[in-house]
Design a protein around this nucleic acid. Structure first.
Lengths: 227, 227
DNA sequence: CGGGCTATTGACGTCAGTCAAGCGGGGTGG
DNA sequence: CCACCCCGCTTGACTGACGTCAATAGCCCG
């Protein structure tokens, strides 16, 4: 299968046809595939939303920046996740590939056309927006009121349910990404992980520090006070 | 007009008829009115969502609690605002009247029935959910990355656009409510307001401390770094 | 007039941030 | 093949912004 790798911002209008994966005329929704290299931007905040994306392999971060560079990551998008879905016409986050990432992409316009006639599709879109809202609401509680240890514990529990195969969490993102997701600094995240390690809640394996073994999920959960 | 005042949790099922405002048989959506006294709960988190509410007069806070009592207010609902709209079956916040508050209420079920047949209504519901999502996304940035002064400035700017008649902001909520909305303590909010006062950005009028005059909107905006 | 509630202000404490050093793995180039 | 460098992470020492605790003042209401 011929797949082009993005080195800068892609896909650009009319580039879909380039790698021969646009829909045939009988398909209503064009489903294409594209790969973004580690660190490349999928779309920028306030750009018109032309596509909706689904992660096939890889990981994506969605974030907002303040003028002085402070960054808040609103969500991580992992395999299976759909992102870039906007009701208004413009993206409200910048999205970047954390690691090399392959996505399916669908023209927003096609999707809206289908949704207009197919109530089931419309309902699904509504459901996705609702799920995003739920996530944001929980995250406000975390950002506004939880301690650093609670935030990191909550993060690990979230990642555990979202990307674990077996009992090893293979984090695609750096400590800085985690910090910007949790409203902390990378040092504080690192210290919290070390403390959880000392407590016997988790272990590190492999030669990178991004593979985490959960040794005691119950104890880990006790560090996040939930609501 | 006969309107009952809630002293505890209301309305209870079948209580709508009590004050004679349920819809006549020709109206599809039943539109009733109800008043909650200051401090009373409109609904609790995880309760089944039976009604959708619109503030007529007053103000409502929506919040989540951690087990140890830490509170995060997710939104304030002011006259005209619709709240309690859930896609799933249960409320995800507790809602309380901040001051005596009169709401219109609509049975969720009726609303869903109408939405099923009327695409315009469905679109509006989707739009409200999207607006809530936008608000939550902006608030994550505030909670995760802004300083106390920036948060308070952002809060005043939000309230200015949402409830000002003339150039006086008449805040219905206490310093504690503001603090729990901004992820701060009430003392920090008070200090930030004092600083903004010193800077000549705002003044207080009246005998309560909840009436604020914006003297310099431009300068105020410069305290919130926006994105 | 008194009690309770809310807000302000000050003194002090603490948790997370800042700054900096050092470690270790991976990749590159000599 | 090895040496070096770069990058991400950890850890320590110190700082600082915000939280905590407490005193006081003003307002509201009975």
């Amino acid at each position: 299968m011929f797949v082009r790798i993005a080195t800068d911002r892609s896909p650009r209008p009319n580039s879909l046809r380039d790698f021969g994966m646009t829909s045939d005329p009988n398909t209503i929704v064009s489903l294409s595939e594209f790969t973004y290299r580690k660190g490349t931007e999928v779309y920028g905040e306030k750009e018109p939303a032309e596509y909706v994306y689904q992660v096939k392999v890889g990981a994506v971060r969605s974030y907002k920046l303040l003028t002085d560079g402070r960054r808040q990551i609103g969500a991580f998008h992992l395999p299976g996740d759909i992102f870039g879905l906007e009701n208004g016409g413009a993206h409200r986050f910048t999205a970047e590939a954390i690691i090399d990432t392959t996505v399916h992409l669908i023209r927003r316009q096609s999707l809206e056309m289908v949704a207009k006639s197919d109530a089931m599709v419309a309902k699904n879109l509504f459901g996705m927006t609702t799920a995003n809202l739920h996530h944001a609401e929980e995250h406000m509680l975390l950002l506004g009121r939880k301690t650093s240890l609670e935030r990191v514990a909550a993060f690990l529990l979230e990642m555990d349910t979202r990307l674990t195969a077996a009992d090893v969490i293979a984090l695609p993102m750096s400590r800085r990404d985690i910090a910007d997701y949790l409203g902390l600094t990378l040092e504080t995240v690192s210290r919290a992980l070390s403390r959880l390690h000392e407590f016997g809640v988790l272990g590190f394996i492999g030669n990178t520090q991004r593979q985490i073994v959960l040794l005691d999920r119950v104890k880990l959960a006790s560090f996040d006070l939930q609501n």
